[in-house]
Amino acid sequence: MSDTTESAIERSTRDFAATLLEDPAVIEYRSAEAALEGDPEFVRLSESYNGLAQQLQQKQADGSLTQEHINELRALQTQINSHAAAQRFIAARERNAALIHDCNHEISSILGFDFGAVAGPRGGCSC
């Protein structure tokens, strides 16, 4: 009984994943994510942003944070948001999330509880 159930869940997980991986929204999302992570300019911008954000947290804690620092961080954020690879990734993520929401709705209606809410990483969101 247990073995049969285990293979049923393994099989259906594999089939479901394989079906999703053929969908244009999923293909584009994976491609856009790989392009983003492999874009040296975007990686450099992200690292600069994260480094500066960390520095500014310390400055905020010791009271030396100025408007100039905040403007510098905002300028980096604007560069990141307007980066072509980031814009492609954001659009692809939205399309993929819409598909995943639909699938989760289908799954949850059968289970009687929200699969995504229970099965996801504990605490926090995915942003």
Partner: peptide
């Protein structure tokens, strides 16, 4: 068990299904 199933799904998809579904 649901975390484990979602983990196996994530390994195949390359992204976290449950997180995106939230």
């Amino acid at each position: 068990e649901l975390h484990s199933i979602n983990d196996r799904l994530r390994q195949r998809l390359g992204f976290d299904f449950a997180s995106l579904a939230r």
